[in-house]
Structures are given as structure tokens and as C-alpha cells.
Design a protein around this nucleic acid. Structure first.
Lengths: 159, 159
DNA sequence: TTACGTGCAAATAATTTGCAGTCCC
DNA sequence: GGGACTGCAAATTATTTGCACGTAA
């Protein structure tokens, strides 16, 4: 593991901006996040984490991430992709979404937000602005609200 | 088909309330609804419709309706239950809900409303009041909103 | 009669699991 | 070195499909 040298070299410059330093070495940042979550930073988890988090907010399925890994020549099994997605979800790195009764989607954006869904092309999009869900009825006795999911289903306009 | 006699008998009393008259013979009412939707009122569709609509608003899965049919000694295959649920959904007698990535739920309440979902026991409930979803962002160009689904996920409070 | 429905069993799709071997700490 | 992790293949779960037979119009 010789990724320590580059970090040391830029130590002085990064002193005033830790996040910049981390941005300089996303792999070691990812390792830290995994370790802090109690997950061993294995080859597969780092590769998948790299694919997931390097390109901004994304909505992926197990199958689509697996294909992406294959294309990137990352050797990983489909079973491990499923395991990794669920482990990442448990520790809060991902959020799982139920949009159609069949496959599960995972969102790399774990902040509070809602979604558009275009059924025709199975496409999920984050909603550009915060949607205020007005007055929710109180949760039944002995219950508390864990999460509110809003999905706005879109249809392509004819013409 | 001798279910006409009871209808005729109460004709006079029902004159001022057609819906009451229909409530008097739900089977023939169901047949009409099916026929109007372009679905042949077959033995299986009538039996399943009876199970679905006789007891007020319900949330069922293919598997749960199949079990219910078995218990009621209604001879029907699981494949037909799936077909029937989807056909009923297409003609607007049911509404399909995606709550968890795995199985599909069907709601006999097709009016606009939202849901509570208790993950621990896979239980779905209609929300008691209309929830106003505030200001939705405009649909992207060339799109229109087909439906808005709100699911409030509940967690059992400890203690 | 005849097209539409249904039952059954086999096919698919998404996901999970068991276990032998591998790798991080 | 030892327990956590991975890969593979087989098992599960939810759902769909093909086709011979049944039945409502």
C-alpha cells in the first residue's frame, strides 16, 4: 500500500483544507468511510464504492452496477454486488428505493429528497427542489415516522 | 340466473336510491362492472372480485388473495390470480402499489390517497386524511404527472 | 361455435444463501 | 492466524408464459 507518499507530499498545502486533501485521494477517503462504518475496506468494496460515488448522484440497480463493474474490468461477483449494496445501505452510504414492484434501486444521494420516475424508460431522477409534504397525519399510537417517500410518476406527453 | 326476482321485489323501495338496490345484489353489480370494463364475468373473476370488494378497502398481494381463495374453497390457480389482479388494475378497479422492492400490493381503494407502511409486519394502511403535497416542481419538458405516490414508513416505538 | 379464459407446469427474473477458499488486521 | 469477506452455484421468491382444455356469449 504505497498511496501514503502522495498524501504526505501534499500535506503542507492541504493543511488548511482537509476536504481538498481528501478529494485528492478519494480511495483513501473511501477506505476511511468504510472503516468508520465498521466495514473492512476490501478490494471489491473499494472498487464498487469508487464506481458508485465518483460521479455524483446516481440511481443504480444491482444488475446495472454489476454490468458497470464488468465493463470497468473490476472482477466482482453479482452476489457480492448485492451484499455490498445492502451493507452500504445499512451504514447509510446508500438509500434503497422501491419504485416498481420488481427490482430495487439504490440512490447515492442520502439527503432528504424525493423522486421523479418515468415508467416508460425506468428512469429515476432526483427532484430538483425540496417538496414540502404538508401536514402529515400523526403516526398511529406506538409508532413513529421513519421516512417519507414521495414518487412522482411521469408520463411522456404525446406529440 | 334467478337473482332478478329479489331485485324486482325491492324495486319500489329502491326507486329513490339506486345504489342501495345494487348493494342488494353485489354479484350482479360486479358482473356489470366487469362487462362494462370489457372483461368477461367468469366464475373466477367474480369469486375474486367478491373476495376483493365485499369487505371495504383492502391491501392485498397475489399470494394473500390466493390463500384467501383457498380458504374460501374457491377453486382458482395462482396464475389466474396474477392475471386477474393485473386485468382489474388495467380497467381501474384496483391500484397497484410499490412499497418494498419485492412483492406488489394492490389497493381496492382507487381514489386519490396515500399510505402508511409498517416495515416490521409488512402492513399497509390508507392515510386517514388527504395529505397535501405542497408545490410540486414542474414536470420536465415533454412530461406530465401521471400520479403522485406518498408512502410514510413507520417504525414501532420501543417500549 | 369460437374467441376469450383458465389451469398447470415449466420458464424467467431478482435476490439470497451455504460453504469452501481468500484476504485484511 | 483468525475471523471477516468473496465467489460460485444452488436455492428461494415473485411473477410470467405456453399450451391444451373449458366456457361464456
Amino acid at each position: 500500500m504505497n498511496d501514503l507518499t502522495p498524501l504526505n507530499v501534499r500535506n503542507a498545502a492541504a493543511q488548511h483544507d482537509a476536504s481538498l486533501a481528501r478529494r485528492g485521494c478519494p480511495v483513501s477517503d473511501l477506505k476511511d468511510r468504510l472503516r468508520k462504518s465498521g466495514l473492512r475496506p476490501t478490494r471489491q468494496r473499494i472498487s464498487l464504492g469508487w464506481l458508485l460515488f465518483a460521479k455524483g448522484d446516481r440511481h443504480i440497480t444491482a444488475e446495472s452496477l454489476f454490468e458497470e463493474a464488468m465493463r470497468a474490468r473490476v472482477p466482482v461477483s453479482l452476489a457480492t454486488v448485492y451484499n455490498t449494496l445492502h451493507q452500504f445501505t445499512e451504514v447509510g452510504l446508500l438509500r434503497q428505493l422501491a419504485v416498481d414492484g420488481s427490482k430495487s434501486y439504490f440512490d447515492t444521494n442520502v439527503t432528504d429528497h424525493h423522486h421523479f420516475f418515468v415508467e416508460e424508460d425506468d428512469q429515476l431522477m432526483d427532484m430538483p427542489m425540496e417538496v414540502a409534504v404538508g401536514e402529515l397525519p400523526a403516526a398511529p399510537a406506538g409508532m413513529e415516522i421513519a421516512r417519507v417517500d414521495v414518487i412522482v410518476r411521469l408520463r411522456r406527453l404525446p406529440g
